[in-house]
Amino acid sequence: MDTKEAVLDILNELTGEDLSDQMDDNLFDSGLLDSMATVQMLLELQEKTGITAPVSEFNRDEWSTPNKIIEKVESLRNE
């Protein structure tokens, strides 16, 4: 499964919304993501994409939109 699909799947599960048409929307501003959901997202990403993203890695500014999350996951994958 490619990263984009995996991320969107996880986000869909967490927010209950299909975000594929709002790839650059800030998910924290819109209230779709909060700390709780973020932690869940990190754990799911770990499980489904094999990346290790510790909580320290998480910076709201860098993980705020679906596109940014995908970018972040890909950069962590290539490490």
């Binding site: 700390s35 709780m36 932690v39 869940q40 990190l42 909580v55 320290s56 998480f58």
Partner: peptide, 13 residues
């Protein structure tokens, strides 16, 4: 939020 709340939830989950 970053060092207590998220870590606690991460650990517990």
């Amino acid at each position: 939020r970053d060092f207590i709340f998220m870590r606690f939830t991460f650990f517990a989950m």
